[in-house]
């Protein structure tokens, strides 16, 4: 299974980026093989607005089935849901630790967005 994790750096030991839309990187981790690819999010980092929506679309297009991150706003949530991606907010520590937390069932999937949208 492929899991996308928002990250502040491009490797598994980078801290999870608590921001979804304006995360520095998305790490796409294959949880069966442990292999990963890093995808920078520069375009959305500097976006005028709608960063969450566009980041969500990118995650869907990467083929992720779940996303581990800090906070997800309502618009990104709607978009991820439409793309049938399961959303696990409140991930913390490094990317490696977040994936472990998720694997051991310690992350709860969100039934709705966990943060308010904002204007940026």
């Amino acid at each position: 299974m492929k899991v996308a994790v928002t990250a502040q750096g491009a490797d598994l030991d980078s801290p999870v980026d608590p921001r979804f839309g304006r995360a520095k990187y998305f790490l796409l981790v294959d949880t069966d093989s442990g292999e990963f690819t890093a995808h920078d999010n520069v375009q959305n980092l500097n976006a005028l607005q709608g960063a969450g929506i566009q980041a969500a679309q990118a995650v869907v297009n990467l083929g992720a089935q779940a996303v581990l991150t800090g906070n997800v706003g309502p618009k990104a949530f709607t978009t991820l849901q439409a793309g049938q991606v399961a959303i696990y907010p409140h991930a913390s520590g490094t990317v490696r630790q977040a994936v472990e937390q998720w694997r051991s069932g310690n992350l709860q999937p969100a039934a709705k967005a966990n943060v308010e949208g904002h204007w940026s």
Partner: peptide
């Protein structure tokens, strides 16, 4: 909340298909 977020009290979504 981190990054200028607030925990949601109740929310509405506005999108169309």
């Amino acid at each position: 909340a981190a990054g200028g977020f607030v925990q949601l009290a109740g929310q509405q979504q506005e999108s169309t298909t």
